[in-house]
Simulated scan of single mutants.
Amino acid sequence: MSLEPLFNPQSRLVGWIERDEHLYDLNLKWVGFISDGNAFSVTTHRWLGPIDELNCLDRTGKVVAWNPSQPIKGRITPMQPLTPLTPLRPLTPLRPLTPLTPLTPLTPLGGWSALQFNTWINQ
């Protein structure tokens, strides 16, 4: 299990992502899961938006959270997928080392989402 950091538009750490699997908050609480390239809330089971590699997008295709190892880009408004079955709760991961703060990125094409990570994940 390898966790990658997620940052907000101001380059503040907001959560963690396990590629193609799960989303965690700063306390490593399991808050979302990824199915077929889309994020879903663990608590509400609602579709949150697409996951583009390691970047989290809202339902309009705008970037909510990003990872410095991937280009930051939005996309046109995606179609809502069918809601998958919620996977079994994963084991709590070991706390990763605090990542270095990346440089503040340029605004992606289409702009940033108006949603903060915690608001996005709790829709």
Rank of each mutant, 00 (worst) to 15 (best):
N38D: 11
T101D: 05
S113P: 15
L57M: 15
P78D: 00
S113D: 13
S69C: 07
T101N: 09
W30E: 06
I51S: 13
G61T: 10
E53W: 15
P5G: 04
R19E: 14
W16S: 03
V64I: 04
G111V: 15
L100N: 06
L82E: 11
I17M: 09
S35E: 11
D58V: 02
H45E: 14
L54G: 04
T44F: 11
G15W: 00
F117D: 09
S113A: 13
P50Y: 00
N27D: 06
R95P: 06
K62A: 14
N38F: 06
F40H: 08
F33Q: 00
G15S: 03
E4I: 00
T83P: 06
R19I: 06
A39C: 14
L26D: 03
L94F: 12
P71E: 13
F33M: 00
L6A: 02
L6C: 06
F117N: 08
L100H: 06
S41L: 11
P84I: 01
I51T: 15
D25E: 09
F117A: 10
L115C: 01
L85Q: 03
E53D: 13
L26N: 07
S2A: 13
T43S: 10
R59L: 04
D58R: 09
D25M: 07
S11R: 12
H22T: 00
V31S: 00
R19T: 08
D25N: 15
L97M: 03
T104Y: 05
V31H: 00
S113W: 15
G61A: 14
Y24Q: 01
Q80M: 12
P81R: 11
V63L: 07
P108C: 05
F33D: 00
T92S: 07
T104V: 14
A65S: 02
I34M: 01
R12I: 04
P84W: 03
H22L: 02
